[in-house]
Design a protein around this nucleic acid. Structure first.
Lengths: 217, 217
DNA sequence: CGAGAGATTGACTGCGGTCAAAAAGCGTGG
DNA sequence: CCACGCTTTTTGACCGCAGTCAATCTCTCG
């Protein structure tokens, strides 16, 4: 990797916040600053995390140092669910954020006693599976314009026509398996075609959702 | 899509085999011929299926008719697990095969009563999630040679050095998000470099596993 | 207001896709 | 068992999308 792009510089400042009401398996909330690492690839997966505020990315790095972003987690999402004993991806704060850690062992034990918890856990796992499958499908078959269209639709709730991008172009590129240049080109092209508007780089207004949907295929 | 490649022509010939010993939620086994459809994308997901013999592909088709293969299922695998009420991919027999259908409702009910079943179900879901994530990562970042190297290693158990490909080049291409031509070129190149041997197209002997692993990254 | 990070734009290149044709398997029937 | 025909695979030539490298522009924040 060239030195032109510096990745997260993790400074572990795990400030303990007042403990909110929560299930028995929940530990006190933790807060992280933007670009701080929450857990690392290969680290023992002893906790699940419920995202209370902010945005988190699940990502990995290959031998050449290139980053791949598996998923973004939004408020309410639970991340850190694994099949193995270790995390298969790192988790990093995209923005400042607050998470509630759930002790994995305790959650699993509770699932054995409480059917509702078991259902919750299964639901989170199947949802994660479905998301990962859809993402793989996108990466396998979509062209760059299609990827961007899909990404914008994924981020914009059915109602709203405007969104604030919390993540940088590099994050988008690493999520879509492409490059910042291509992301930039596609977004600018969409703006020229009046499909979107970008008053500033991080703010996007959807002008023609139908056109986006058609592009996404 | 050009007319040069004909996909599966499903002829539903669901022969009922003698019922093997199995859990209460299992229905009698079904057998399918090569290229028969087991279930279709969008169809209500009322069953899970345990693969008893043969090979199955989980796949979808885009607007242009291009196929994407999400996963291959091997003997012992359970497929058809979904987050939603409908199947998000089709399942097709790659070779002749036999499956045992499990009634989804019954499995889920049993999971509520029997912790072991709940654990089994959760384990299958998290494993499917992990597989899908790994696949997405491969599709996002790997070059064509890397994809092929990864594929060969994925198919070859640690011990064995030889494998019989049950699937066609088109299946491999659709699984790796590439084309038959590229698959063919990469395999032939690997053979020229003495990394593998191909006495016939469907039989591959790994000559230099370390080189493959290095390629896969 | 200045510095530095982040985003855009442009020129060029190369990997892998597309189209086309030849070769190799493989099953079927004489 | 061999010959034929169809399918699958390989090979070749060419091209286009998106990656790379590099320069410029534009925010944001101190």
């Amino acid at each position: 990797m060239s030195a032109s792009f510096a990745y997260a510089t993790p400074r572990p400042r795990l400030e303990i916040l007042p403990r909110p009401v929560g299930p028995a398996y929940a530990d006190p909330a933790l807060s992280f600053e933007a670009d701080e690492e929450i857990f690392a690839e290969g680290e023992p997966a002893r906790y699940l995390y419920r995202l209370v505020s902010g945005l988190v990315r699940s990502c990995g790095f290959d031998a050449e140092g290139r980053r791949y972003i598996d998923r973004f987690y939004r408020v309410g999402d639970v991340f850190g669910i694994e099949d193995s004993a270790e995390h298969e991806f790192s988790a990093e704060a995209v923005t400042d954020c607050v998470v509630v850690p759930w002790r994995r062992r305790a959650v699993e034990a509770e699932a054995g006693r409480d059917e509702a918890v078991a259902k919750l856990l299964l639901g989170m796992a199947t949802q994660a599976m479905a998301k990962a499958r859809a993402h793989a499908r996108l990466l396998a078959r979509a062209s760059a314009p299609q990827k961007l269209a899909h990404f914008l639709l994924e981020l914009t709730p059915p109602g709203a026509g405007e969104l604030e991008l919390a993540m940088a172009r590099q994050d988008i590129a690493d999520y879509l398996g492409t490059t910042i240049e291509t992301v930039s080109r596609m977004l600018c092209q969409l703006e020229r075609e009046h499909v979107i508007e970008m008053p500033v780089a991080r703010r996007i207004r959807l002008r023609n959702r139908a056109a986006l949907a058609a592009l996404a295929g």
